[in-house]
């Protein structure tokens, strides 16, 4: 475990062609890390995420990925993830192969990955067309009852990236609030990078709180605000106005690219990104 900068962590641990999962279900989405991957111009990533919303809209639109494994891809409550759509419908900025699941299937795949089992199992997908278009969704017969159950191959990303509320100085990480599949995705990965709101002397973790011990964490980076425009419970709320505004920013290629060029590629780090938004009068 190393406590380091986000630039150093992404530079050292995320390689072109890697399978990378940025998790966080609406809450604690590691936006700063996604933008740093864009800044470092990683290419050919296989991106994995249950809900590829704005964070993957940005990364896919910026050309970081050629494959996506997911279960729901949109701008929650607003509409389309326009850049994800454009990649699937029109190969812009490049072709994007997809492996599509349901949430329950994807959750089972992460649980299997965290358990180092070969596959996850569920009563799922029954009567749907998803197994027809995703041949990885198969069936197994229960050896006890004969019931047919759906299976999904384990997900084991090369790198999982999470955002959390805090870490202590030894790099133990505490997550609270809506957890999504963060713990499972973290434990399924070969490397786990975590950005946090703050680094503290004492986590003050409740006994059954979600703590990722430092020996399963590869690197911790202190990036206050790093989940914006999603939220970090106890620190700041979800910026729903920005999610609504993103619909216009991302709708066409030129507006999107200008936004990425100005605010992400044109800034050195996440603090610079926030400062640039504020200077333009649109910052949080």
């Amino acid at each position: 475990m190393a406590i380091t900068t986000l630039q150093a962590a992404i530079g050292e641990h995320v390689r072109d062609g890697d399978t990378v999962a940025l998790e966080g279900f609406t809450h604690l989405i590691p936006f700063a890390a996604g933008q740093e991957i864009i800044r470092q111009r990683r290419r050919g990533l296989h991106l994995v995420r249950m809900t590829p919303d704005l964070v993957y809209d940005q990364m896919i639109g910026a050309g970081c990925a050629d494959r996506l494994t997911f279960s729901w891809g949109g701008n929650p409550g607003v509409g389309s993830a326009h850049r994800v759509r454009d990649a699937i419908e029109n190969d812009w900025p490049g072709a994007l192969a997809i492996s599509e699941h349901s949430h329950a299937g994807m959750a089972a795949a992460y649980v299997a990955g965290a358990s180092h089992l070969p596959f996850g199992m569920l009563r799922g997908y029954l009567g749907t067309d998803l197994p027809r278009v995703n041949p990885a969704i198969r069936q197994v017969t229960c050896p006890y009852t004969g019931e047919q159950l759906a299976t999904v191959p384990a997900l084991n990303p090369d790198v999982t990236i999470l955002h959390a509320q805090k870490a202590d100085r030894a790099g133990n990480v505490l997550i609270s609030g809506i957890l999504g599949a963060q713990k499972e995705a973290g434990l399924a990965a070969r490397k786990l990078l975590v950005t946090v709101e703050e680094i503290v002397d004492d986590l003050g973790a409740p006994m059954n709180g979600i703590v990722l011990p430092n020996w399963v964490v590869t690197a911790v980076c202190c990036v206050p605000g790093g989940a914006w425009p999603s939220y970090a419970r106890g620190y700041y709320a979800r910026d729903n106005a920005f999610y609504i505004a993103w619909d216009e920013i991302s709708r066409d290629r030129e507006t999107f690219s200008a936004w990425i060029d100005r605010y992400v590629l044109g800034t050195g780090d996440f603090a610079g990104f926030i400062a640039a938004l504020r200077a333009a009068g649109v910052g949080p």
């Binding site: 089972a108 809506i178 979600i210 979800r238």
Partner: peptide, 22 residues
Amino acid sequence: LSIGDGELADTATAVVPLPEIF
């Protein structure tokens, strides 16, 4: 607005991990 707004967690009886809900 989203399925996981903070308002939902703050006013819930219990908040459980996503694999568990399914």
